[in-house]
Design a protein around this nucleic acid. Sequence first.
RNA 1: CGGAUAGUAGCGCAGAGGCUAGCGCACUUGCUUCGGGAGCAAGAUGUCGGAGGUUCAAGUCCUCUCUAUCCGACCA
Length: 586
Amino acid sequence: MRMSKMFSKTLREAPSAADSKGYEMLLRAGFIRQMGAGIFTLLPLGYRTNSKIENIIREEMDQIGGQEILMPVVNPADIWKETGRYYSIDKEMSRFNDRANRDMVLAMTHEEDATAIARNEIGSYKKLPQLVYQIQTKWRDDARPRAGLIRVREFTMKDSYSFDRTVEGLNEQYKNHYASYFRIFSKAGLPVIVVGADSGMMGGKVSHEYMYLSPIGEDTIITCDKCGYTSNRQVAVFQKKYFKEEEKPIEKIKTPDCKTIEELCTFLNVEKRQTAKAVFMVGTFIDDKTGEEEEKLITAIIRGDLDVEENKLQKVAKANSLRPAHEEEILAANMVPGYGSAINCDPKTIVIVDDSVKKSNNLVAGANEKGYHLLNTNFGRDYTGKVADIASAKDGYTCQCGHTLKENRGIEVGNIFQLGTRYSEAMNCYFTDEDGKNKPVIMGSYGIGVGRFLACLAEEYTDEKGLSLPISVAPYQVHLINLIKDKALSEKIYEDLSNAGVEVLFDDRKESPGVKFTDADLIGIPIRITLGNRSVKEGKAEVKFRKNLDNNQLFDLDTLTSKILESIKTLKQELEQGIVNKELEI
RNA sequence: CGGAUAGUAGCGCAGAGGCUAGCGCACUUGCUUCGGGAGCAAGAUGUCGGAGGUUCAAGUCCUCUCUAUCCGACCA
């Protein structure tokens, strides 16, 4: 490609919206442009990198037996009504009516499509197992897109769907993806860790997320250096300390101006762990069949030294969504904000109690009366509710192995879910087994956000001068900079390299050397050839690697092409050495 | 969806009632230059986000609206 003919341009200054280094460089180097909130165009350079990422994914998916298909973005709403997600998913899914006034949706994922196809194609156990995948556009009307390509509304996703006869078969496909994803990310040079995760709206059981660790990430990851435990905070577990003593009789005491746990502890001179706090949320419950919504008050009781993990709470309560309760709603259920507890509350309230409270006793709790608390409250004796772990894991907490947990920020670039029969049963996707019986197909779904992958690579491979993507995903392999008058020579070198199959970005512009060098730094093609008077006179060209600009090598012009081919090979080999082969142990 | 901020040239920004709206970079042409964002000269570029209003006069003040960004809620 000749830079004199290139569609995009580079920017000297970063657009003001660029708030991360990677995003800034993607904009400045001319990889991407924004069209609207969470909507982007990939320019030629960005699209080439995007395609390379996609091809790495294809290679690996084919390797584990995937067959590529393409499902539609526009879906009839009917299939989404079958699984109930038409009702349970809120505004994030865009809906519209076609000219015949049929309900339509823009697919935000393709479990429904995949199942709808599979139920017609798969009738017999002889057809199983199957694995299909696609690389396709998704639209999710996120309320708050941010950080460039990290969190967008329209994006490309690789999604695969497995269909199996048995749970063992599903495990096999799941393990294949688990290992395959590590190879995919490492082939592109992106370091990731895998964490145990919540399956969210997918509704499955087992699930893992692939995380690129970065301070700009929106997920919090809890890890243990000793036993290797890694988990998204949403589901992370930890060791709680319990303090059991002899039960004492309940006692009401005056506690003026003690609305927070801190104030209460100071006033009574007790530790936080000797208190029980009440957190009031309102859960929305949606009927999958009818789409009817119902709101219920949820009272979460947790020990004062811990915080509620809302995601855990939502799951235990089986709510579709949660929001903080309003004061009136709490009062209506016979509880008093600031002095709340589940004691003598409205029986319609869903009470969920963290196991820390059950296993401790004589806790100070609200008396549901302004200015009063109760000493020595005990779960089981004074109130009841559903017991579960709803506590949020934090930095410094104790891992179940006894070591200290750490927290980090991460960006989710991939996820794998064991769906089981949730979709096949809801959508009547059954096969006839060897024994003549009809059984639901067992499914899994697996995703990689391609654009987010690109954004993470940009974060990882950026220095103060620009991008420096690995050779497997860089838009071109070689950047040829011509600084000499002799056009014939540079043209010949460009031709030779191209004919040898090298992907060359050729700077043939009438620009000053400084402009050419800065643009080359910015775009960050891995290998740079400079043709300048100094070296050409000696029959040589200068060659530098973008990742180490201080190291300048001189290659003979006669053998330049073959030497460059070697350099490409070397860079590829270095990357291959970094390929992660990791198996899931179930 | 709540809170905050901002919309003026391709990008970054100035102009805060006054007459023809400006600066840097980018862009065009010419000459010179040619190893780390060159110099000189000449030029082109705007419905000042949109609608309505106040005023002799609005980029500037008011109202509404749209859009974007950030924080939060939310999110695979």
